[in-house]
């Protein structure tokens, strides 16, 4: 006689436990290397070296030098975010609605993927090689057009130079994010508007832009945060000659300039707050945009 034993999947209880073992490492990792370090900074921003709760550190942020560093950072991030959005939008509109050949669209999207990740040190080198004192474009302008770029006060190691450099990853990021949104504008909307007597401008004002608005604003916030947190590009381009918030923090951590770790906490905390606000705006608006474009 043969007995057939049917092996059922293991009972519910042990399986559940096993599944927890599957996700536990992730949470432990996130706790140790993401949550706790960040919390440490946040808590530290409100403590003095003796461990007492205080607002003194945040008060130190109001000193003119640090305030101006944050101000320059905000200006830089805002400027490159706005310009990035504007130019990125124009390029995305050109490749989606402009009737350009399809392969060009794909090529531009691929290039945008590369350029938006081509940030940091090498990007700074590329701009020094292009717009530096002996850079390609500088020489080109001098020899061919007789324009002395540096004579007119330009310097790649400056606010303007940094802004130009940041745009190199800001614009492609905008192109990558806004292209799907533009492709989500349905042809029928335009045709429906036309059949109801609307002009092209009326269609854009009353339908297309309102539909894109959350995406546009959201991307603006994302680009702001993107520029605000960028350190490597700025350091490689300007050394520490341009005092922006992340560079101040970098110097602070290195202990080169000031030696007050709790001021460092406060600067870091302020950076988190600013990028968090920008990102929350992005996420909120993104959710609204997806509701419409589903």
């Amino acid at each position: 006689m043969t007995t057939i034993t049917l092996s059922l999947p293991s009972a519910r209880q042990p399986r559940q436990v096993l599944s927890w073992f599957g996700v536990a490492p992730f949470f432990l990792f996130a706790l140790l290397f993401l949550i706790l370090p960040t919390l440490n900074i946040v808590v530290g921003a409100f403590r003095n070296p003796q461990g007492q709760v205080t607002l003194e550190n945040l008060g130190k942020l109001l000193s003119p030098s640090i305030l101006s560093a944050f101000w320059i950072s905000i200006e830089l991030s805002l400027l490159t975010a706005v310009l990035g959005c504007l130019f990125g939008f124009l390029i995305a509109a050109a490749i989606t609605l402009g009737g350009l050949p399809r392969p060009l669209r794909n090529a531009i999207l691929t290039f945008s993927g590369v350029a938006s990740n081509f940030a940091g040190v090498p990007l700074a080198f590329a701009f020094i090689a292009t717009l530096g004192r002996l850079g390609f474009v500088t020489m080109l302008l001098r020899h061919w057009f007789g324009i002395n770029l540096y004579g007119s006060g330009f310097n790649v190691v400056s606010f303007l130079g940094l802004a130009l450099t940041y745009l190199y990853f800001q614009i492609p990021l905008m192109v990558l994010i806004i292209t799907p949104a533009l492709e989500g504008l349905r042809r029928e909307w335009r045709e429906a508007a036309e059949s109801l007597g609307a002009s092209g401008a009326q269609y854009w004002r009353m339908v297309a832009l309102p539909v894109l608005w959350p995406s546009l604003l959201g991307t603006l916030a994302l680009l702001f945060a993107n520029a605000f947190g960028a350190v490597a590009t700025a350091i490689a381009l300007t050394g520490s000659s341009l005092s922006i918030a992340p560079i101040v923090l970098f110097a602070q951590i290195r202990g080169d300039v000031l030696n007050d770790p709790h001021l460092g906490y406060a600067i870091a905390f302020a950076m988190i707050v600013l990028t968090a606000i920008a990102n929350c705006i992005y996420i909120l608006l993104r959710m609204r945009a997806e509701r419409w474009l589903k």
């Binding site: 508007a193 059949s195 007597g197």
Partner: peptide, 28 residues
């Protein structure tokens, strides 16, 4: 198209997603 005085209804409805029903109807 916008000067032909023609009403069009599409397979995919093509309502303007950012406008209410009343605003959609009142668009023209």
């Amino acid at each position: 198209a916008n000067r032909r005085k023609i009403g069009m209804v599409f397979q995919s409805y093509a309502l303007f997603p950012n406008l209410t029903v009343a605003e959609n109807v009142g668009f023209g």
